[in-house]
């Protein structure tokens, strides 16, 4: 589904990712862990198409297409979803207008009929319960005045509505209390199928108690220094990152 080969990414001339290789297949859940500043969010943003991240080398194919060739909106319409670490507040754009426009842009891309107002409301109601999002939130402006937890729930709500093939969740767990974390994780689990895949970027093993990954990768200084199964996450929780740094032969 997603194939990253030798990806190098710079931000304002500084190289952040120094040759990433990663393959994600349908049905899989990958967790990307790593200390602060290792390049996790850069990877997520570059995959979603943020123009402030310059791809200097490497290739990314997604469902057989050259992903790097697509605009952010077309990546989205091809089925990639980025859950933001810091969802953006957009005053004046109502949630309803935003969601409906987004869904209908997806429909248009697939040459399908746009949803009628009734169908859209029905879909909203259905997906709202999935993430236990407060009804009141959908009548407000996008993320405006939402609490940290509400913003993250809202990301999963959007994910549920857009039904992506590949979801990249960037630190979706940060800033969540344990109840919100459970709700968010439940949402992600309920949306899992054998055809879609999820990349979870996180600091903490905690989230992986709820979302069980098939693979765990450790990103350090712009490279994946170790990959393993979920036990790797437990090892990290126990021992921290230092042993890995030594193993990877990098000066601490």
């Amino acid at each position: 589904m997603l194939n990253i080969k030798g990806l190098r990414v710079s931000v304002e001339g500084k190289e952040i990712l120094k040759g990433i290789n990663l393959e994600v297949k349908p049905g899989e859940v990958h967790a990307i862990m790593g200390p602060n500043g290792s390049g996790k969010s850069t990877l997520a943003s570059a995959l979603a198409g943020n123009e402030s991240f310059e791809i200097t080398e490497g290739e990314v194919t997604y469902m057989g297409k050259d992903l790097l060739d697509l605009s952010p909106e077309n990546r989205a319409r091809e089925g990639i979803f980025l859950g933001f670490q810091y969802p953006v507040e957009i005053p004046g754009v109502s949630m309803v207008n935003f969601l409906r426009t987004a869904i209908n842009e997806h429909k248009k891309y697939k040459n399908e009929e746009p949803l009628s107002a009734g169908e859209f409301l029905k879909l909203m109601r259905e997906k709202k319960s999935l993430v236990e999002i407060d009804s009141d939130l959908t009548s407000r402006s996008v993320n405006e005045g939402f609490s940290g937890g509400e913003k993250k729930k809202n990301e999963i709500f959007q994910m549920a509505l857009l039904n992506p093939t590949l979801s990249i969740l960037d630190e979706t767990d940060s800033g969540l209390d344990i109840d919100a974390l459970r709700i968010v994780a439940n949402g992600v689990n309920k949306l899992r199928t054998k055809d879609n895949a999820t990349v979870v970027i996180t600091h903490y093993q905690r989230l992986l108690d709820y979302i069980i990954p098939d693979y765990v990768h450790v990103l350090y200084r712009g490279k994946i220094v170790k990959s393993g199964d979920k036990s790797l996450a437990l090892q990290l929780e126990e021992k921290g990152y230092d042993w890995l740094k030594q193993e990877a032969g990098i000066e601490v």
């Binding site: 989205a76 953006v88 842009e105 997806h106």
Partner: peptide
């Protein structure tokens, strides 16, 4: 960018 990542041109 946020709107674009949701498929909005």
């Amino acid at each position: 960018f946020y709107l674009q990542t949701r498929g909005i041109p």
